[in-house]
Design a protein around this nucleic acid. Structure first.
Lengths: 225, 225
DNA sequence: CGTCTTGTTGTACGATCGTTCAACAGCGTG
DNA sequence: CACGCTGTTGAACGATCGTACAACAAGACG
């Protein structure tokens, strides 16, 4: 019979590994309890660690929450980029893949969407959230603008003649288009969060595609002048 | 010389009056401090009353917050109805008045919009917020649907021939139109909240009008078949 | 002026908050 | 096996939280 070896009371992890676990626990607490879930004790319980560990890996709670927001953003953008990457090469197909990914799991989940809303609600009064927002939001905007630029270039150039004027004219137009599409996406997400039964995912995709189609029509009409 | 009459230490108010003051103080605290401003002591200080008074007029904090949400909703819908009412009678003019009021003071204020986001962030985990949402949101939806119905009736009937088929066909279409427009409005509000410099109010109005115009075109095209 | 109603005050209570820190212990290393 | 680094624990701190409640007082009324 071997010597009685006590099971270790805890397992040491690499800092990066533990940090990620704490970040994921933070997001899980947000899903389960909303803003009230953002307490050191709730999060440490979710991560199955002691209360003191959080301040060993993060300087304070704000920084943990900000890191969770960064992770949450990165997950979204990464998922979207992956969905676009494995779509057919054509601009419409890539845009369609983007929209369908926007209105399908794991993004179109009421708990997940509610997490976004809570983060956004912190924006104006949390410096660290503002910092992360400015750092990561442009990744999303870049993706949306890229998809739109492909489509609008096709619409502007394909109709009658190649207009060099189309490029600078599309600059302001592209900015507005990205803002409008982002607004439509966020607004539909918000409604899904508040009332998931209000519409079906495919309806949302079609609404966005209708918006984009009317945009392309307007662009090509202007290019026709 | 008259007898020295001490100034009264406080002034008694009618319950309705005091309740309103507490509700307005709650909203002001939300504007100034976000979700963290929702503490009994912060709110009572803002209202210049003692901590105990809140629980004399409201059973608990949740009910005060829910009452504040109800007031906030009522103020928005009331303002919108007023803006529409004093517009010219024509459907496009009424819709334009609605959109302009949506993207002008006092609604288009970053602090005010942030209050919406905080309320929305509470929705999924607060029964009382859910109750108020279901009670008051339909007032807003009714207004939007009414304005859209006027426009779509005009678009569907005006083009070629009067189609009785247009009315039932427009039922599902009207539902989607209201959802889309609401999403666009909310999404633009959210972006204004996170980044007020991203677009100008008149750009937002034009984006909404472009969305509605393309909607009308589609409707009238379908009615033409 | 005395009485009564009730809106208002402010203390008190127990719970929970974020953070600190000394002690512990897992586990790679010699 | 013993040492040392450091990830980890958990108690402790002062602050703040929401609520309860007994005492106070404003103001209407007779």
């Amino acid at each position: 019979m071997s010597a009685p070896r006590r099971a270790p009371r805890f397992k040491r992890r690499l800092p990066a590994e533990r940090r990620l676990a704490l970040i994921e626990a933070t997001i899980e607490c947000l899903k389960r309890f909303g803003h009230d879930g953002l307490s050191i004790r709730t999060i440490s319980a979710q991560a199955a660690v002691s209360v003191g560990l959080i301040n060993h890996h993060f300087p304070n709670k704000n920084e943990l929450v900000a890191a969770a927001y960064r992770h949450f953003n990165a997950q979204l953008v990464g998922g979207m980029q992956a969905a676009v990457a494995q779509a057919p090469e054509s601009p419409p197909a890539r845009m369609r893949a983007f929209l369908q990914a926007s209105f399908a799991a794991p993004n179109l989940d009421a708990d997940t969407l509610a997490v976004w809303v809570v983060f956004w609600g912190m924006y104006r009064h949390s410096r660290s959230i503002q910092r992360v927002q400015h750092e990561t939001h442009q990744d999303y905007v870049r993706l949306v603008r890229g998809l739109l630029a492909e489509l609008l270039a096709e619409a502007g150039a394909g109709k009658r003649r190649r207009v060099r004027r189309g490029v600078p004219a599309a600059a302001g137009e592209l900015r507005r288009a990205a803002i409008g599409l982002t607004a439509l996406l966020d607004g539909l997400w918000l409604q899904w969060c508040l009332q998931p039964s209000a519409f079906r995912p495919d309806e949302a995709v079609r609404m966005c595609e209708a918006w984009i189609a009317s945009l392309c029509e307007r662009i090509s009409a202007e290019a026709r002048d």
